[in-house]
Design a protein around this nucleic acid. Structure first.
Lengths: 241, 241
DNA sequence: CCGGCACCCGATCACTGTTCGAGAACCACT
DNA sequence: AGTGGTTCTCGAACAGTGATCGGGTGCCGG
């Protein structure tokens, strides 16, 4: 201890301008059973986000859900962004880390990413993940990423290759689930957009031909795309002996 | 004509609930040279976003920049989301579409994605792209996507493969640029996070070993990741004869 | 019994997106 | 020149936002 020095309710917090990430400060309640805690706030935030979406996440709504005054939250967290950071990290605890080393590294990666994908789809608001101005350095996210990188390192990648492979795979899960979650729009508008697209077939022949935005073969697209990536990674390993 | 019926300033707009996408309504100013136009608003919005970022994009700021009352904007657009949709689509006009069919399809894809990446990095707020609740159906975005899909279709992909390949590639550009743009955080906090990560080396040995979040080899990671994807796609083509 | 600490909250501030209705500017046509 | 209507502008206002401040509880060790 002693590394993280900032007090929970410091009068001049983050004197050097921007507030620090939640993960760099320690929780202000080391006691036994406080009535309100970061954990309870995070839990309620996730429930609220799942039920009503990102734009309905409000300090007042969240407080009401917890049966608490709105400003009370600010004793436990510094900022609304903190709540979102905590929620995002918490859901990564739901992504299962496959046991043992059964099977090829490809099978391990597929299992890991599939579990993560299912988790992200359960929480559609996670599409907001990449837009956070600060990177994710929550413990659960780091654990998940560590697992992925370790799997790749064990598969035979080295140095820069590990990072590159890791980000390609992560972007694939994150990007495809974000698209899928965002594209759950109203049926009427969707129909209008499809009509509009079909009317402009001369401008977008390929998009129309391959039914851009018309079918919902999310699973197939994800699996096939993942296969492509894994094939490319396998080629890299083969080339490196 | 006659397809898009909603009036620009309709009293009860989008009577069926959610507002329609900008692209499904027509511009309210078919006149010669109106002082304020969608184009000028879009232009100013992009400049504002580039200079001050997403959270500083405000109707009032935008209006002030245009030397105009805040509420004036609402005659030209229905909603702030419309402005963002317009801005996002407008920057896709900056992504160059390589001329002709010189070179292999891989080279064409690399050129296309590199141009898109440079454009997205010039406008870091584009990281917010995937989180929009409605999908991108602006003309410039569709043109760009059409070009990518057409390139892939010409390369020999068929049916579902085209879509899957297209999304893998798109997610790679979008995801990597979003990460890079988001990770431009303050040096002090970054140092603190690195310190924290190094302290927990026991928990995250691989992340520390491969310098997660320590180096900024964005270009190398992007290129290498793209190579993996292209190799995987090449394997698909080879398998399909 | 009491001082101090952990925790809570009502009032309030500056600001947000958006609506409303009153107006100004322009146009075609008499 | 005048009139009527469409096109465009805007100030005032509304409900709601994140966040701060200072004054409160209630509890616990002494």
């Amino acid at each position: 201890m002693g590394v993280i020095v900032s007090k929970p309710r410091s009068s001049g917090r983050a004197s050097s301008g921007a507030a620090q990430s939640v993960w760099l400060r320690r929780s202000p309640t080391p006691r036994n059973e406080p009535p309100l805690s970061r954990e309870r706030i995070t839990e309620a935030a996730i429930a609220l986000l799942d039920e009503e979406g990102m734009e309905r996440l409000t300090m007042r709504h969240l407080a009401e859900r917890l049966g608490v005054g709105a400003t009370t939250l600010y004793w436990h967290i510094d900022t609304k962004d903190d709540v979102i950071d905590l929620a995002i990290d918490a859901i990564f605890a739901e992504a299962p880390l496959p046991e043992g080393d059964t099977g090829s590294w490809q099978e391990n990666v597929v299992a890991l990413l599939s579990g993560c994908r299912a988790m992200l789809l359960r929480h559609p608001w996670s599409a907001a993940l990449p837009l956070r101005r600060r990177p994710s350095i929550g413990p659960n996210f780091l654990t998940w990423l560590e697992f992925l990188q370790a799997t790749l390192a064990r598969a035979g990648f080295e140095g820069r290759q590990v990072q590159a492979a890791c980000w390609v795979l992560y972007n694939h899960v994150q990007g495809s689930t974000a698209s899928q979650s965002s594209l759950r729009w109203s049926g009427t508008e969707r129909a209008a957009a499809q009509e509009q697209l079909r009317m402009q077939q001369d401008s977008y022949p390929t998009l129309v031909a391959y039914e851009y935005m018309l079918d919902d073969a999310w699973d197939e697209n994800f699996d096939l795309g993942l296969k492509y990536i894994l094939d490319g990674l396998q080629a890299q390993i083969a080339a490196s002996h």
